[in-house]
Amino acid sequence: MNSSRSLRLGAWLLPALLLAFALASCGGDSGDDADAKKPLATIDPATAATITGTVTFQGTPPAPKSVRMEADPHCNATPENETPEVTQEVVVNNGRLANVFVYLSDGVKGRYAPTADSVVLDQRGCRYHPHVLGVMVGQRMVVRNSDATLHNIHAAAKINKEFNIAQTQQGQLTDQVFTHTEVMIPVACDVHGWMRSFIGVLSHPFFAVTATDGSFVLKGVPPGTYTLTAWHEKYGTLQQKIEVKERESTAVDFAFKAP
C-alpha cells in the first residue's frame, strides 16, 4: 500500500459522499422564483382605484361546532373566552360570510416592495387572531403568544419553507418572513388541535379578508383587467374577471352557496 493508492481510494470516496450529501439536502425548498424576476412596481395615487364588495352566503350555514377548551386549563383563563366556544371555520352573520380571503390572482403587473409595517398573528385564548390573514412577500409577520401556555406554530407551507416553532412564554414574539407567493398556507397549533389559521402570501398589496359583515376593500389598485378570487377554507374559491378604471371604485360581490 502506498499513498497514491490511498489517494485513489479517496477519489472514489469523495464523489460518493457528495452524492450522499446531495441526497440528504434535497427535500428543501424548490419554489420557483418567478416573482423575484418581475420588475418592481409602485402604486400611482393619481390613477389608483378601489375595489369594494361583499361576500354573501346562501342557504343554511352549518351549526357551529363546539370546541372543548377544557383540554388546557390555561385556555379558559382568558376573559375573551366567555364567548361561545365554537370553531371559526364558518362565520356567517345575516347571510354575510366572514374570513374570506379576497385577492387579485391575475393581471397584476410587476411586484411590489413589501410594506414596512408588520402584520401580527396573535395567539390569544387558544385562538388565532386573525383567523385568516394576508401578508406580502418579504413583509415581517410577528407571531405573538398572549397565553400563559405553550403554543407551537406549525405552518404547512409547500412553496415557502415549512416551519414549526414553539413559544413557551406569555408575550413571546417571533418574526417570520415569507419568500414566495403562496395562497393559502395552513397554520396549526399541535398542542391545541382546534387552533387553525390561514395565511395568504402575495407579491402585491391587493388583498383583503372579509369582516364579520362580509365586506372587503382593496385600495390603490392600478387600472387594468384582473381576476379577483375569493377563497374560503371550507367552500373553496370563486373567481370573477373585472375591469378597474382610473380612480373609480368598482363593486364586486361574491356569493358562496351551501353545498
Partner: peptide, 8 residues
C-alpha cells in the same frame, strides 16, 4: 413525540 412532548 416532538417539541410539545412535555406539554402532552
Amino acid at each position: 413525540c416532538g417539541l410539545g412532548h412535555y406539554r402532552m
